[in-house]
Design a protein around this nucleic acid. Structure first.
Lengths: 253, 253
DNA sequence: CGCACCGTACGACATTGTCGAACGGCATTC
DNA sequence: GAATGCCGTTCGACAATGTCGTACGGTGCG
């Protein structure tokens, strides 16, 4: 039976839609979006509700993601070796750099944040674990794209977030080439005005890049007067990346 | 067609199993656990892999949860009104109490942690968002059980974690009655030796308890000499819970 | 070498999910 | 206040769909 199971595929599509929609959605709404008959969607929703993957508002009748899905999804982190091994090192990187630290993997041409350490200054910060960042506009993304065997670029036109965002494909591949040579990447106000990020690759025992670790913060703290990343911060990040890689078995010595 | 869709139910069971197993599992292993033929399980896995809900190790051939599931699951938090509204208040509760703060909901007789603020002292702490805590052995759980319309207790014998854990059903319902009267709950070394937690209920506009907020920390800081929770901490927690409830529309004045 | 186990492929069968049509409830409209 | 639109939900016949016995190639172990 080499072929996917239709109903499961559809159920996944429903969940994806509910996840992207941000708000609750009705049966008809989902049916229209998926181009499926309403009763079909309803059957799927009923089953997903039974297993706790979606919940239904008692009053409006609309559906949203369920708690069980959240809990199961978060168990992904337990099995994620990259994240487990990186826990200690990211803490110490945060302490040394005094900036917030994130660890990410490439997922469908975007950066999936699997770990996030807040900047150690007690400021109010939002947890970004589970979020997807645009790969072409952040340092972690560039690191991952530069070392990606599958060319994940050229899927779609590159979206601009600020006027420093790289939107040209040629310029991006030049930048990626530079990242490959230097061994680290930076993003200077390419995703958020005034924000800078630095990142370096994490490799496993097969020397494949499996993730990236990076810091991010305001440009005044991360860059010098020439808008260049401060060298000591770059080395902190690269050292952290190397330490994690060593723990994953990439560097035998 | 009032009846769940078999394949989706089974797919959910596979995911649950993979989530609980902590490590990677093989097709045969899953098939045996679910009492299903191997090819059936394989078909499900193939589909789940296609949609990114599971991943397969290239070398061992075993399966584990996938990144897509993690990302979709984490979107649950965006739609969770309780958590959204509670963000600010939990930060300030952490600042006032100088302890770590958690927000939880009842999920299948356990406490699902939907938010977690670290203790503001730069110490190394593990993020517990997405985790499930035993309801009868923590303060948030007691608050939720005490205000639960469905009697979620008596499902199974109560598991002991320390020798202070309440394992007797009658003693538990006495404790819950006290929680209802006082309006807050405590757990003194009932889950972890040396650890204490305090919690209060969060109600929504229908005055239904939809969650709980609480702090936890070492007994020396949370309790006085008589092992009684310190009153000022209790009021901090209760005030935070009331503020969130008011924001959810529970208290009109 | 042979055995046991793995993940995977095939394909006949009937179980299973699909989806057009229809129902009751709720707003809104005229 | 009847009419209309939309909603989430149910029914049930049909056939498409997924199920699962059987079998294959690969790997590790004794």
């Amino acid at each position: 039976m080499p072929g996917p199971i239709q109903s499961i595929e559809r159920a996944a599509a429903v969940l994806r839609l509910l996840a992207s929609g941000a708000r609750r959605m009705g049966v008809g709404e989902l049916a229209r979006a998926l181009e499926l008959p309403k009763p079909t969607v309803h059957g799927i929703l009923r089953t997903l509700q039974l297993v706790g993957f979606v919940e239904q508002s008692p009053d409006t009748g609309k559906y949203q993601l369920g708690a069980a899905l959240f809990h199961i999804g978060s168990s992904y982190l337990d099995g994620n070796e990259l994240r487990t091994r990186a826990l200690n090192w990211s803490d110490s990187l945060a302490a040394r750099s005094m900036e917030s630290v994130r660890i990410g993997t490439l997922h469908e041409a975007q950066v999936l944040v699997v770990h996030h350490v807040f900047r150690p200054d007690n400021s109010r910060q939002v947890l970004e674990v589970g979020a997807l960042l645009p790969a072409h506009a952040c340092a972690m993304g560039k690191v991952l794209l530069a070392n990606d065997p599958v060319g994940h670029v050229d899927d779609e036109p590159l979206k601009a977030f600020t006027n420093a965002t790289i939107t040209d494909l040629d310029r991006l591949s030049d930048a990626l080439e530079q990242v490959r040579q230097r061994g680290w990447a930076s993003d200077v106000e390419e995703l958020v005005e005034g924000e800078v990020s630095l990142a370096a690759p994490i490799r496993d025992r097969r020397t494949v890049t499996v993730g990236a670790i990076g810091i991010s913060g305001p440009i005044e703290r991360l860059c010098d007067a020439d808008r260049q990343p401060r060298t000591e911060l770059v080395s902190y990040v690269r050292e952290a990346a190397r330490s994690i890689s060593r723990e994953l078995g990439a560097i035998p010595w």
